[in-house]
Design a binder for these strands. Structure first.
Lengths: 223, 223
DNA sequence: CTCGACGCTCAGCTCTTTCACAGCTCGTCA
DNA sequence: TGACGAGCTGTGAAAGAGCTGAGCGTCGAG
């Protein structure tokens, strides 16, 4: 789960970042409007949180440009309470939802989950591959009805695999989405965590869901 | 698939290289501008990734010279966020697309796929010859709906054959694009791998797709 | 402060993949 | 038809990709 937060107030920004990271998201925080636009265009994010009051470039402008470029990523805008008109303009410009400051962080998390769900088209936001089920809202994972306990990183990895099931995910892609690293670390963390996941998810099951694609990466697949 | 990456930051460069190689591309990495120009002109690449900020020679200069020499290879330029003007100049100078740093590797891969597709004119990037189908995005190959498992090299070879189906490909051409070797090694690896592919793709099928052109090379052809 | 959970590194092991090589087959041409 | 060379293929060695158990540092809870 890769999320971009464009917010100039550092306190608010880092607060949001922290909350999202505790939900196992990989978060990029950006305090500048123009910069934020570039990041959004190049970053393949799953969702964007956008403050409408920014230096250099008004948030509304960013939003319009993103949509003009054909970017479909869900955007949640933040506005001051008083600025009703901004909010309306924002929604018109292609925002998917809004929140007025000040807001409860719980509220923000909940709304982001809704947006993510909308994107995948999965019913009720629940991800399912074969008899493996992941509920992002409760962070609960089960296989064949059996509950599986995962650590934060394991969960993040599994969620990424499930949201992209059937697609081969290369190590650089995984490292970017789950670890938020944008360079090669020459470690085998990913292999290690895939192994952890296998032990918890595939061990003892007839049908394996996590498959290695030698020389390429990994793929989560049912059939 | 042969790709040239001209990028002086070694970390970024090797990260890109790795990502592309996991997509079965043959990658040449070059950290110097002048050298990069030579390579690009001499190398018959399918695509070029060009950082605009390079030592010795500005990336823009390289691009202009390439186009002046009549090279049509698709070029994806990388720019720093702030340098909007550079990017514009780059596009004017003949770049096919751009990406601003930092970018998600996934985004880069996706854009390169688009550039490659543009060349071949294939719809949605899916390659098809007779009932043999290759999906570069998911790295999946099927014949007559039947799934075929390929190793990395086998896949790279098949992709090359399919992107050039109907054309006779000589051994030096194959060796350059799939193995990234530019001299004759006096081996018969290519014959060996063509044989592997035949076993997986043509064996048991009435219509053979891989044909030997004695004294020349190989060709993938339907009917 | 202590303990356990977690994130991660590292090194040794396993098994696939890649490739060299040699003997074979088959097409071509005299 | 026979000789030659191009291409095919079975065998096995070497490399390397991936797996996994051991262990270390950090952080938060008790």
């Amino acid at each position: 789960m890769r999320i971009l937060v464009i917010e100039d107030e550092t306190k608010v920004g880092s607060f949001i970042r922290r909350a999202l990271e505790e939900e196992s998201a990989a978060v990029d925080l950006c305090a500048d409007g123009g910069e934020g636009l570039e990041w959004a265009l190049g970053g393949s994010y799953d969702a964007i949180v956008l403050d409408l009051m920014l230096p250099n470039m008004p948030g509304l402008e960013i939003l319009k440009r993103l949509r003009k470029e054909g970017l479909q990523t869900p955007v949640l805008i933040l506005t001051a309470r008083s600025q009703v008109d901004q909010r309306v303009q924002g929604l018109d410009a292609g925002a998917d939802d809004y929140l007025t400051k000040p807001f409860a962080i719980e509220e923000l998390l909940a709304r982001i989950r809704v947006l993510l769900r909308r994107g995948t088209g999965e019913a009720k936001g629940i991800l399912q591959v074969d008899d493996l089920v992941l509920n992002p809202a409760s962070r609960e994972v089960t296989r064949g009805g059996q509950r599986i306990e995962l650590t934060s990183k394991e969960y993040a990895l599994l969620e990424y695999l499930m949201r992209n099931h059937g697609r081969v995910l290369t190590r650089p892609m995984i490292s970017e989405h789950v670890w938020n690293l944008d360079f090669d670390t020459f470690t085998n963390v990913i292999d290690v965590y895939v192994n952890y996941l296998r032990n918890k998810i595939d061990r003892g099951h007839e049908r394996k869901l996590i498959h290695t694609v030698r020389g390429s990466g990994y793929v989560l697949r049912g059939d």
